[in-house]
């Protein structure tokens, strides 16, 4: 009974947080759609950008909710292909830079950079790896007001190692061990699903993901490793 009560309490809390995360972008979409409806001649481009940005936020939330469901039902399948990880990360970085330039991202005081050892071919699910990298960079932006976010890609033995290092607020040491648990969130924004989904995607590739505070005391680093030629599971197994 106690177990069920705790689960229910978790579920209630999650529904509260998820509904907050849905209503917040809907508020921006609704208001700016109302402006366009009432005075379509003014600020059209700016309002369209805000509507787009908030619709994307809703899309990410919906995708995360669906992914959690797939993970828990063990039906999340990987579609593996061979691709160059350096090229993929370059495209992702370019997308972020374009979003910043087009004011879709409020990150003008942050320098985003990428370093790679060159071509690194992996056999993995390109969309899912892209999802993980995007989630890590997105989180880095959330916790960094000024400074830099540096993405490094290295080849070590038969693995590819990606590090997303920021100069943000860092991670409370008390939550480090639970950071990738479902519903774990360390800010007033977010549902605590993104890192849970990312961890499951990386583990499904036979890899590992972890986080640490930077040794210089500024910000945190998120690191994941995947085998170049992944023989990871095709279905995600939930660890108890």
């Amino acid at each position: 009974m106690q177990h069920n009560k705790n689960r229910l309490s978790d579920l209630t809390e999650f529904i509260n947080i998820a509904s907050h995360e849905m209503r917040t972008p809907v508020q921006s979409i609704l208001t700016h759609a109302e402006f366009l409806y009432n005075r379509p001649e003014k600020y059209t481009q700016e309002y369209a950008q805000i509507i787009f940005r908030n619709a994307m936020r809703l899309q990410t939330l919906c995708n995360n909710l669906l992914d959690v469901n797939r993970i828990e039902r063990q039906t999340l399948k990987l579609k593996k292909e061979k691709f160059d990880l350096t090229e993929l990360v370059s495209y992702i970085i370019q997308d972020f830079k374009s979003s910043i330039e087009n004011s879709l991202y409020d990150a003008k005081n942050i320098k985003l950079s990428f370093e790679s050892a060159g071509e690194i071919i992996v056999e993995a699910d390109k969309d899912r790896i892209s999802q993980v990298i995007t989630n890590l960079i997105d989180n880095a932006f959330k916790f960094t007001e000024v400074g830099s976010i540096k993405i490094t890609l290295e080849k070590k033995d038969e693995t590819a190692v990606i590090t997303v290092k920021d100069t943000g607020s860092g991670i409370d040491p008390h939550v480090l061990s639970d950071l990738f648990s479902k519903f774990m969130t360390i800010s007033v924004k977010g549902t605590g699903l993104g890192l849970f989904v990312s961890k499951n995607i990386i583990e499904a590739h036979g890899g590992d993901i972890w986080a640490k505070n930077n040794s210089d005391g500024k910000g945190a680093s998120f690191i994941f490793v995947i085998p170049n030629n992944s023989s990871g599971k095709y279905k995600i197994c939930i660890k108890s």
């Binding site: 917040t24 805000i50 908030n54």
Partner: peptide, 11 residues
């Protein structure tokens, strides 16, 4: 939320 504070102000 900057999008909300600015739009509410404007509205």
């Amino acid at each position: 939320e900057p999008d909300i504070s600015s739009s509410v102000k404007r509205g």
